[in-house]
């Protein structure tokens, strides 16, 4: 390996106290994710997918082991540095979109840039570019309640990528979408991965999402059961969503 991986975990362990003992959520997970990957953590509910994403996203810290993300050791980050890492380099996409209802589409996408302190003109340029990438530039003035589920999730994608993050973490991004919208959203993410080189890491058990992945990491009971490079069945060449 010549380049440093974007994400590198070594013997990552996360336990939660339950009753008198500990519940093992992650069990010695060692993984490397390189820049530009389109990978997914897959597995049944309770397998540790979200816990892994939380640690990689610096929302949580491991009980043991290490997690290095973009050169930062997550286990030693304080709240401030963790927030700064998320703010500058990591975009999040959630299954329930989580758009701020009182703000317009433009303002929702603009919010991460406000936290970065960018000037207004730069913010405007970036927001419009991000919305154009997901095909929603014409809905910039709309409110979230005027959008469909698919459009809302595309706005959330815009918000995640507007700051040009190195890494986008998507936790069950299609859980609240129908098949057509799911494919449209995934197709958009594949295109952004290809055009911007942004690394996408999913947590999912949705077969539709799995069909788009180029790398599939299977967790079972918190441990890596399989880590395989796969050929996507959808969206590889940027074709229209089925």
């Amino acid at each position: 390996m010549t380049a440093e991986p974007l994400i590198e975990t070594r013997d990552l362990v996360k336990t939660y106290p339950v009753g008198g003992g500990d519940l093992i959520a992650l069990d010695r997970v060692s993984l490397r994710v390189a820049a530009g990957e389109f990978a997914g953590i897959v597995g049944p509910s309770g397998s540790g997918k979200t816990t892994f994403l939380n640690i990689v996203g610096s929302l949580d810290t491991p009980t043991r082991g290490s997690a290095r993300v973009l050169g930062e050791r997550v286990e030693t980050l304080g709240h401030r540095r963790a927030a700064a890492l998320r703010n500058r380099h990591i975009g999040f996409i959630f299954q329930t979109f989580n758009l701020l209802p009182v703000y317009t589409v433009f303002e929702n996408v603009e919010f991460p840039l406000l936290l970065l302190g960018l000037p207004a003109a730069e913010r405007r340029r970036r927001v419009m570019a991000a919305l154009e990438r997901v095909g929603l530039a014409d809905r910039a003035r709309s409110r979230p309640d005027q959008l469909s589920g698919g459009q809302s999730q595309r706005v959330a994608i815009s918000r995640a990528v507007v700051k040009d993050p190195a890494l986008v973490l998507a936790d069950e991004p299609t859980a609240n979408l129908d098949a057509a919208n799911s494919h449209q959203v995934l197709h958009t993410m594949v295109r952004l991965n290809r055009e911007l080189g942004t690394t996408f890491l999913f947590s999912t058990h949705d077969e539709k999402v799995i069909g788009y992945l180029r790398r599939r990491i299977t967790l079972v009971d918190g441990a890596v059961a399989a880590d395989e490079v796969v050929t996507p069945t959808h969206g590889e060449n940027g074709e229209a969503a089925p």
Binding site: A83, R86, N98, F111, L115
Partner: peptide, 16 residues
């Protein structure tokens, strides 16, 4: 609650 959670998740400091 959701808004605050989202803002913390995307990197806003608690103090901010």
């Amino acid at each position: 609650y959701g808004e605050f959670g989202l803002r913390l998740a995307i990197g806003e400091e608690k103090g901010h």
